[in-house]
């Protein structure tokens, strides 16, 4: 299997990094090899945040040498004696970043933030985005117009037929009382549409019952 590439984006405070953390743990456990990076910005809210996750099947097999103890016999469970450094952990020599047009899944908690990844998107991309849009403060000060969701929808459907959107923030408020859970609903939607790349059972080990319930609710949402 070739590497699969995921973009997760939004703004500071929306839960991009928590969503990424859950997915990374689940994908690592399922596939055995991940890489990628975050663009976190500063600690303050509402700045651009993005994460890249790359994963590839076939590395969780002992024969493929995900965990190599340096003796030539790859074994994920092979405990190495105290104070002996392992020689290598993985033959997963993928770059942190990936090529233009090679995004397989794009998850956006603020619809316009995904425009920053135009180059990475293509017809192979499954795009799932919240309909929420927040005009940047620099646009406000300039008293300039900002994107409407209908424009963004037209844009993304030009790129891929697999464009899914939802009012995840309001749905999260309706279900949980707070918009913060929009990230979990969106993750659920991704799980439902990812054709097995990630399943609900994969994520269960890494979140509590409340979050898992919200992810499940997201998986049950209807497509728009």
């Amino acid at each position: 299997m070739a590497a699969k590439n995921i973009i997760i984006t939004g703004m500071g405070g929306q839960g991009v990094l928590y969503l990424t953390s859950l997915m990374r743990q689940a994908l690592l456990k399922k596939y055995g090899a991940i890489t990628g990076y975050d663009n976190r910005g500063g600690a303050q809210r509402l700045g651009h945040v993005a994460s890249i996750i790359r994963f590839e099947d076939g590395f969780n097999d002992e024969a493929d040498g995900c965990i190599n103890d340096g003796t030539g016999s790859a074994n994920a469970n092979n405990a190495i004696s105290q104070n002996t450094a392992p020689q290598s952990v993985s033959t997963f020599t993928r770059a942190l970043d990936f090529d233009d047009g090679a995004c397989d899944y794009a998850l956006s908690l603020e619809a316009s933030e995904l425009l920053k990844f135009n180059d990475k998107l293509s017809g192979r991309s499954l795009i799932i985005t919240d309909e929420f849009i927040m005009a940047p403060t620099n646009i406000r000060r300039a008293d300039a117009a900002y994107f409407k969701f209908s424009e963004l929808k037209r844009h993304f459907t030009q790129i891929t037929a697999r464009f899914i959107h939802g009012d995840f923030r309001n749905e999260a408020k309706r279900i949980s009382g707070g918009a913060q859970a929009a990230n979990l609903l969106l993750l659920g939607r991704f799980i439902a549409l990812s054709e097995g790349a990630l399943e609900l059972k994969d994520i269960n080990d890494f979140c509590d019952a409340r979050d898992f319930n919200l992810i499940t609710r997201g998986a049950q949402m209807e497509n728009k």
């Binding site: 405070g13 809210r45 180059d119 940047p136 620099n138 963004l152």
Partner: peptide, 21 residues
């Protein structure tokens, strides 16, 4: 980057970092 951008209908607008609410 510019070569790739011109194929798209919308281009991203800059989002400055800003103070928290």
């Amino acid at each position: 980057n510019n070569d790739n951008e011109k194929d798209f209908y919308l281009q991203p607008l800059p989002r400055e970092g800003t103070f928290c609410p």
